[in-house]
Amino acid sequence: MYNQSDDFHSSSKNPVQCQHGWDYDDTWFSLTVPSQMSWVCDNRHVTNDVLFYAQNIGVALGLLFGYIGDRWFPESPRWLACRGREEDALRLLKRIATTNGGQLPPYARQVMRNVGKAQRDRKGFLSLFSSWNVFKNTVLLITARSTHLLTLQSIVMMSGGVGVNPFLSVAAQGAIQLPAYCVVHFTAACFGRCWSAVGSALLSGIAAAAVSFMLTANFSGLAITLMMVITQFFRTGTNGMANLQSVEVHHTCLRQIAACVEWTAAGVVMSALPYVALMELILDRQEREQRERDREQREKDRDKFLSELKTDMTT
Rank of each mutant, 00 (worst) to 15 (best):
209 A>I: 05
214 M>S: 06
225 T>I: 02
66 G>K: 10
105 P>A: 09
168 L>Q: 12
33 V>S: 03
41 C>S: 10
123 K>F: 08
130 S>Y: 05
279 M>S: 15
309 L>F: 10
71 R>A: 12
37 M>F: 15
277 A>W: 02
215 L>V: 10
218 N>D: 15
155 I>N: 08
249 V>Y: 06
238 T>H: 01
156 V>I: 12
75 E>F: 12
289 E>M: 13
283 L>D: 08
106 P>G: 09
26 D>V: 13
133 N>F: 04
56 N>E: 10
8 F>E: 12
101 G>P: 03
182 C>F: 15
221 G>C: 09
60 A>F: 15
79 W>V: 06
301 D>F: 06
217 A>K: 11
93 L>C: 13
31 L>G: 03
227 M>R: 04
190 C>K: 14
64 L>Y: 12
236 T>S: 14
234 F>P: 00
218 N>V: 05
117 K>W: 04
150 L>A: 09
232 Q>I: 01
312 D>I: 14
256 Q>L: 02
268 V>I: 15
99 T>P: 00
236 T>K: 00
27 T>P: 01
93 L>I: 03
96 I>W: 03
83 R>N: 15
257 I>T: 15
306 L>V: 03
42 D>K: 14
97 A>E: 13
19 Q>G: 08
142 I>G: 06
31 L>T: 14
230 I>Y: 01
70 D>I: 00
174 G>W: 06
34 P>G: 07
134 V>M: 12
125 F>A: 07
127 S>R: 06
212 S>G: 10
308 E>A: 13
170 V>T: 13
202 L>C: 13
40 V>T: 11
94 K>R: 12
219 F>L: 14
300 K>Y: 08
112 M>Q: 08
129 F>N: 02
228 M>A: 06
1 M>I: 14
86 E>P: 00
29 F>R: 11
273 L>N: 09
1 M>K: 13
138 T>R: 02
103 Q>W: 06
228 M>V: 02
126 L>R: 15
18 C>G: 07
174 G>D: 05
204 S>Y: 00
92 L>P: 00
109 R>H: 09
50 V>H: 04
282 I>V: 11
157 M>L: 15
159 S>L: 07
253 C>E: 07
106 P>D: 14
182 C>Y: 13
226 L>Y: 05
288 R>C: 06
120 R>I: 11
280 E>I: 00
24 Y>C: 05
260 C>L: 09
32 T>L: 04
10 S>R: 03
191 F>K: 08
8 F>K: 11
84 G>A: 10
232 Q>E: 11
114 N>W: 08
27 T>S: 14
224 I>P: 01
159 S>P: 10
142 I>Y: 07
203 L>F: 15
201 A>F: 01
118 A>T: 00
15 P>W: 10
145 R>Q: 11
269 V>F: 13
271 S>E: 07
